[in-house]
Design a protein around this nucleic acid. Sequence first.
DNA 1: CCCTAGACCGCAATCGGTTGCAGTCAATAG
DNA 2: CTATTGACTGCAACCGATTGCGGTCTAGGG
Lengths: 326, 326
Amino acid sequence: MAVTIRDVAKAAGVHVSTVSRTFSSPHLVNSATRERVLAAAQRLDYRPNRAASALTTGRTHNLGLIVADIANPFFPPLIKAAQAYAREREYHVFVADTDEDPQAEEELIQTLAKQVDGVVLVAPRLSNLAIERLGMDLPFVVVNRRVKGLSAVLMDIGHGTSEAVEHLAGLGHRRIVLVPGPRASWSSEQMSRAAASAAERLGVELVVTGPNTPTEQGGVAAAAEVLDSGATAAIAYNDLVAIGVIEGLDRRGVDVPGQVSVVGVDDTVTGRLNRPKLTTIAMPTPAAGRTAVDLLLQAVAGGRTAAQATLETSLTVRDSTGPAPS
Amino acid sequence: MAVTIRDVAKAAGVHVSTVSRTFSSPHLVNSATRERVLAAAQRLDYRPNRAASALTTGRTHNLGLIVADIANPFFPPLIKAAQAYAREREYHVFVADTDEDPQAEEELIQTLAKQVDGVVLVAPRLSNLAIERLGMDLPFVVVNRRVKGLSAVLMDIGHGTSEAVEHLAGLGHRRIVLVPGPRASWSSEQMSRAAASAAERLGVELVVTGPNTPTEQGGVAAAAEVLDSGATAAIAYNDLVAIGVIEGLDRRGVDVPGQVSVVGVDDTVTGRLNRPKLTTIAMPTPAAGRTAVDLLLQAVAGGRTAAQATLETSLTVRDSTGPAPS
DNA sequence: CCCTAGACCGCAATCGGTTGCAGTCAATAG
DNA sequence: CTATTGACTGCAACCGATTGCGGTCTAGGG
């Protein structure tokens, strides 16, 4: 049906191996023949069959990108960037969603394994051990997690968190509440640590609530705790939670940023368009997507180098934070 | 390196063809041997190589899903659902983003063609002609577009639009302004037509502005026109535009929904979390994703049946609409 | 003028499965 | 008891591309 390398060979009057070489190692074929082959290929609209070449070379030219929840506004910019960057390098990417289920994550990796040259795992839910084990068979890059022996892209929330605390302290807030997500998340820890040290340095009080589910609902629920804490400013686990907190406060007649300031994390569209527009710790998600693919392709090509990239975060000030009420 | 069908054959003491058959047509092999093969496969952790079988069967068990912009909150729920549904049917999906560029869209389809059994095109930017041409080679399903000879999933915005107009008329609005997106979009047309007929039926006046870029910016810019129109209610092209309109009105000191009511389209997270929460025409995007994959797999398996599915939309009333000011 | 080193190109095996064809064997019909 | 049928299973030829090996031919050295 489709035009194959044989058709091109026939049309150009050469052997199939010559056609193959004109594409994979052009320097091995005489320029005149090369032209002839290229012309024939062009004329017949020949496109190499990736599956076939994958069979012999072991390179599929496909990547896997596994995220917890495509619909979470945090992920799409990362997916978009990763996919665009991969395409520039002639790679296609499978995007899969685990629905936050570690079980599904593992199965997914298993079935994907044969069809990709490597996988990007964004904030995996799997245990380190499981990931390490899988990492023996296939190049992996993890995002926002460290796993021994694997390349990683880390978005260092520490810096952004410090900035946020400074920003709030500068506005006169003396007591700040941290509204974390689920326990035991890598980012959550980073954030707590950085917030604690910044708070201490600046002499403001830091209280912690939670854990919360990392959704708007979770934020709404956490609003009560925020009020009880007596803090005048809150830093939420992510934008969704922040929006929930604002909503929850609003329902209790508390104005943001008039009475309480709220800071989010991620800098999603949703936060950007919220009213009040969220002050948020911006995650460089597109850069993370690109970097992850970059490291992955290095691992695929080069070998067992477990590189590590750390990307900075920084505070973006908008309208959900303001001076502490006096 | 990896375990192949031959290893399993050796381990089970049978020929490779028997192993192949135990997986692809189990009824052709004796149940005792089948067990033996299965046991061996299990023990060796054998997983069939999709690329290899694709070579002989022509079935890759992969699908392509092409959208204009992954980061547009309209798409992720669709992608998520499509991908999950496909996976249940043992299909993986390549997700690709064209950045709204028809050129990129075509190239993408070309390079993807050899690696997938079919492609879902969501709101393609390509001309019908180009799509029809490509459709000769590969099963396609288009979403929110009709192309001769291809299966389609249509989200009928008409119904939701009528509901929106009725809702607004019921609230006492006598003049409604339509804030469309770019010209010549299938949905835009559907929407205008439905709004016009509903308006006529209900005896309310309908004015149209635009065209606008389908972003928040576009909405902000359109706010002036909305005010000039003298209307007390607006129906925007999508949630993003609606949010922009609200923002633009707010900057001019106009309250929503106090003075002007605003209706969005799509029911995205962003709109759902907006403040005020958007009244919006809900698009059944997850269902659309599933249905598209369903039709695609039918086309892949069955043959040239160009099925067509129409999904209903309906109005979700939240807080951005209210009684007309008196 | 002969010999040799490249440069090119063809041959054929191979990647991992699939599948039409044919052979084996036992059960059943006649 | 023999012929036939059906259930299994093995054989081997593919699918489309890659690549080590070896052969052919020409240019340049001696």
